Measured scan of single mutants.
Amino acid sequence: TTTITTTNEEDARRIATEWKNKGYTVHVEKRGTTFRIEVR
């Protein structure tokens, strides 16, 4: 599992989409101002 964190919502969406397009399972969680993107 790879975890990526960013405070930028646009980055979070872009990163999540990129990983999904590669065939990975992506889970995005917002904690306060931080977005945690888990890639499996």
Rank of each mutant, 00 (worst) to 15 (best):
T1M: 13
T1V: 15
T1Y: 14
T1H: 12
T1F: 14
T1D: 07
T1C: 09
T1K: 09
T2M: 15
T2E: 07
T2K: 12
T2H: 14
T3G: 04
T3E: 07
T3N: 06
T3A: 07
T3Y: 15
T3Q: 07
T3K: 05
I4D: 01
I4F: 15
I4A: 03
I4E: 03
I4S: 02
T5N: 07
T5C: 07
T5F: 15
T5V: 14
T5M: 12
T5K: 06
T6L: 07
T6K: 03
T6I: 07
T6V: 14
T6H: 03
T6Y: 04
T7N: 13
T7L: 10
T7E: 14
T7H: 11
T7Q: 12
T7K: 09
T7Y: 12
T7P: 07
N8A: 05
N8M: 05
N8Q: 05
N8W: 05
N8I: 07
N8Y: 06
N8S: 13
N8H: 06
E9C: 05
E9K: 08
E9N: 04
E9H: 07
E9W: 14
E9Q: 07
E10G: 08
E10R: 09
D11P: 00
D11K: 06
D11M: 10
D11H: 09
D11A: 10
D11E: 14
D11F: 09
D11L: 11
A12V: 05
A12T: 04
A12Q: 02
A12K: 01
A12L: 03
R13F: 14
R13P: 01
R13W: 15
R13G: 07
R13L: 14
R13H: 13
R14E: 06
R14G: 04
R14N: 07
R14H: 06
R14W: 06
R14D: 05
R14Q: 08
R14K: 10
I15S: 02
I15G: 00
I15E: 03
I15A: 03
I15F: 05
I15Y: 05
A16L: 05
A16G: 04
A16C: 06
T17Q: 14
T17R: 11
T17M: 13
T17L: 14
T17P: 00
T17N: 13
T17S: 12
E18F: 15
E18W: 14
E18T: 07
E18D: 09
E18H: 13
E18S: 08
W19M: 07
W19N: 02
W19E: 02
W19R: 01
W19Q: 02
W19D: 00
W19V: 02
K20W: 08
K20Q: 13
K20L: 13
K20M: 14
K20T: 12
K20D: 04
K20R: 15
K20A: 13
N21V: 08
N21L: 13
N21T: 08
N21E: 12
N21F: 07
N21M: 12
K22R: 12
K22H: 06
K22I: 05
K22W: 06
K22P: 00
K22E: 04
K22G: 04
G23D: 02
G23C: 03
G23R: 02
G23A: 02
Y24S: 02
T25D: 13
T25H: 13
T25V: 13
T25W: 13
V26Y: 01
V26D: 00
V26Q: 00
V26E: 00
V26T: 04
V26S: 01
V26N: 00
V26L: 02
V26I: 05
V26H: 00
H27N: 11
H27L: 12
H27P: 00
H27I: 14
V28A: 03
V28D: 00
V28E: 03
V28P: 00
V28Y: 05
V28H: 02
V28S: 03
V28N: 01
V28K: 01
V28T: 05
E29I: 13
E29K: 08
E29L: 09
E29G: 05
E29H: 10
E29Q: 09
E29M: 09
E29C: 10
E29P: 00
E29T: 13
K30W: 07
K30S: 06
K30H: 08
K30C: 05
R31S: 13
R31D: 15
R31P: 02
R31H: 14
R31G: 05
G32A: 05
G32L: 04
G32P: 03
G32N: 05
G32R: 03
G32E: 06
T33K: 11
T33V: 11
T33I: 11
T33Q: 13
T33P: 13
T34G: 09
T34Y: 13
T34H: 12
T34V: 14
T34W: 12
T34D: 10
T34S: 10
T34R: 07
T34L: 14
T34C: 07
F35L: 04
F35K: 01
F35Q: 01
F35M: 03
F35V: 04
F35N: 01
F35I: 08
F35S: 01
F35T: 03
F35H: 04
F35W: 15
R36Y: 15
R36M: 14
R36F: 15
R36Q: 12
R36L: 15
R36D: 07
R36V: 15
R36P: 01
I37F: 01
I37M: 02
I37L: 05
I37P: 00
E38I: 15
E38R: 08
E38C: 06
E38V: 15
E38A: 07
V39P: 01
V39G: 02
V39N: 01
V39S: 02
V39E: 00
V39M: 05
V39R: 03
V39I: 15
V39K: 02
R40Y: 14
R40A: 11
R40V: 13
